[in-house]
Write a protein that binds this DNA or RNA. Structure first.
Lengths: 158, 158
DNA sequence: TCCGTTTTGACCAAATCTGACCTTTGTCTG
DNA sequence: CAGACAAAGGTCAGATTTGGTCAAAACGGA
């Protein structure tokens, strides 16, 4: 049985689909009013169904003229590539990291020089903060790959 | 639903864009009149959106013939951007990070969407590893900006 | 019944906007 | 020249408008 949360979820997704830029701007109070529920229900839906894991980014502002903006990211190929990112996990050693970068080059996701750049930056950061190297490496790798992937997609859309 | 403050902000930015010297001189009372608001609203906009952090300088004079001058510090491209990166240092709190991202947007180094992505990624990573948040944030921010900047430079060479 | 998910409501935090009151600077007048 | 007056802009506290958090109650399926 479809719950209220499900209905709100599909409404939001529908609105996103309708824009070329895959964005929707919501007014929390109005939306709650439309679905005859309490405003915090909207937060619940956003928190459980529009996570970054699932490819969404939420941005919001309080006060007069406040809003909640939902942006869909990670469409298409990188959704699939996201699988690689998951494998990074909470920690990764240098060998595994190198291996991953090579794999991404093989899959045409990265160019050699981009992989090289990423490797260099990690080295630099680890140099400055040697504590918990494998964990920091995992964070940095994931972060940089996400940025890079986004760039690749933006390019493809042109 | 953009707020009044947003409209005033964009009006001022537009005026600045129109001059080669990146300066605009305002008359507080007139401007308030034009936007049908109280004069102190102008101060509010200036105080919240045209801060030094974001690359603006405000000068003003009271009394007869008084004025408010808004000057945008010139963007010096990559060289200047390197300075921004240095400012990150070994640790940075969330507010400073946000300011930096907004500054980079204002200076045309990042697009809003990219800044948003970077913010989202940091949030996620900090969620997973809350230890030494300000340090991890600094590392992630620097790493992602470097990747992004490289991309921007590559684009400029084309 | 038990457990995870939904839903609600009370309370909180942030951004915006206004208005009353203050300070600085320039000008006019006795 | 002193003092009054006018013409800017500045400050700050409080009301208003949004959205955020969290814990407890309600619900629904195994």
């Amino acid at each position: 049985m479809a719950s209220l949360a499900d209905h709100i979820e599909s409404y939001i997704k529908q609105q996103i689909q309708r824009t070329p830029s895959q964005v929707v701007v919501l007014n929390r109070a109005q939306l709650a009013e439309a679905f005859s529920c309490v405003p915090s229900q909207i937060n619940y839906v956003l928190a459980t169904r529009f996570t970054r894991e699932r490819g969404y980014v939420i941005e919001s502002r309080r006060g007069g003229g406040g809003y909640i903006r939902v942006v869909k990211t990670l469409p298409g190929r990188s959704q699939e590539v996201a699988g690689f990112l998951k494998r990074i996990g909470s920690a990764i050693d240098e060998q595994q990291a190198d291996h991953l970068l090579v794999t991404l080059i093989d899959h045409g996701v990265l160019q050699r020089r981009q992989a090289q750049l990423i490797k260099g930056i990690i080295q630099q950061e680890l140099n400055d903060f040697p504590q918990a190297a494998d964990r920091l490496r995992a964070s940095l790798l994931r972060a940089m790959l996400l940025v890079q992937l986004h760039e690749v997609e933006a390019k493809e859309r042109r």
